[in-house]
């Protein structure tokens, strides 16, 4: 059990390993909770779009030399989340097209800015780490962890407080409006916490892999479970376990953290998929 020994040593001796675990598991938990709603509302694309917006904002922040990048990234992402959810419903531009436009646009402009005003010699390295998540999760400071814990606490509290509303708005929005539940308000709540999660998750897995973190656990759980609550619980368990396994493996084998976590999610998804096929067979 050499690997295990190494791991325990790491955990005990290096605070950054503990930080990485805390942040990683919290983000995975939040992402999976919202993931179920986003997938069911057919908003799974929004994770993608927003993460690219966040990437663009990150590039702007880097170019302008802001030390506190969050100050730009979070508001811009929040705003885009709200706008995207609006366009998705009302205007003539279809939701998915709007998302594609915004996300590709933000990606292109972000990349161009990074090239025009390089802040370091290694541009492709910078871009790569913003897209695929850096090892920066292993270089977290105590303050980063604190921010993450607060944000995650907000997301979790809002989710628990408004769980029933979120379910109902996801299931049947017009019924909610009809009986006097303000569906728009809850859609806004969903948009805002989605944006927060995405900004948080950029550190962990990078902007390209955020969608995976949001979608895979939800899809896995939906293969097997049939009530909303059980799907939520199952997908958060899957997500947290995968994040933990992913971080451990990435430390042991020095693989990129983000991709390792997502790979774990994919493996679990395949497992659940096969299970559902087998269950389906035996039931018939």
């Amino acid at each position: 059990m050499n690997g295990l020994q190494t791991l325990v040593d790491y955990f005990v001796n290096y605070p950054f390993v503990r930080y990485a675990f805390a942040v990683g598991l919290l983000i995975a938990l939040c992402a999976s909770l919202l993931g179920v709603t986003l997938v069911l509302k057919r908003f799974s694309f929004i994770g993608d779009g927003l993460s690219h917006v966040a990437f663009g904002a990150m590039a702007v922040a880097a170019v302008t030399g802001l030390t506190n990048r969050m100050a730009i990234v979070l508001p811009v992402t929040l705003l885009s989340a709200v706008l995207l959810l609006r366009t998705g419903k009302n205007t003539k531009i279809k939701g998915d097209a709007a998302v594609a436009m915004i996300s590709v646009g933000a990606l292109a402009i972000g990349y161009m800015l990074m090239n025009l005003f390089p802040t370091s010699a290694n541009i492709s390295g910078d871009v790569c780490s913003t897209l695929f998540g850096s090892t920066s999760i292993l270089t977290l400071q105590k303050s980063d962890v604190a921010v993450c814990v607060v944000m995650a606490a907000i997301v979790l509290t809002v989710f628990v407080l408004f769980y029933h509303q979120i379910f109902a708005v996801t299931f049947d929005e017009s019924f909610c409006s009809a009986i006097g539940v303000r569906a728009n308000v809850y859609n806004l709540v969903i948009a805002v916490i989605t944006a927060i999660i995405i900004v948080l998750a950029m550190n962990l897995v990078g902007s390209l892999l955020i969608s995976a973190l949001i979608i895979f656990p939800a899809l896995s759980a939906m293969r097997v479970f049939k009530s909303f609550l059980s799907v939520i619980i199952c997908s958060s368990v899957i997500s947290v376990v995968c994040a933990a396994v992913g971080i451990v493996l990435s430390i042991l084998f020095s693989t990129p953290v983000g991709s390792t976590i997502v790979t774990a999610d994919i493996v679990v998804f395949l497992g659940f998929w096969i299970t559902s096929v087998i269950i389906g067979r035996t039931r018939v």
């Binding site: 759980a221 009530s227 799907v231």
Partner: peptide
């Protein structure tokens, strides 16, 4: 694919 029980 919406997972929702009758009770919910």
């Amino acid at each position: 694919d919406f997972p929702a029980s009758v009770r919910e």
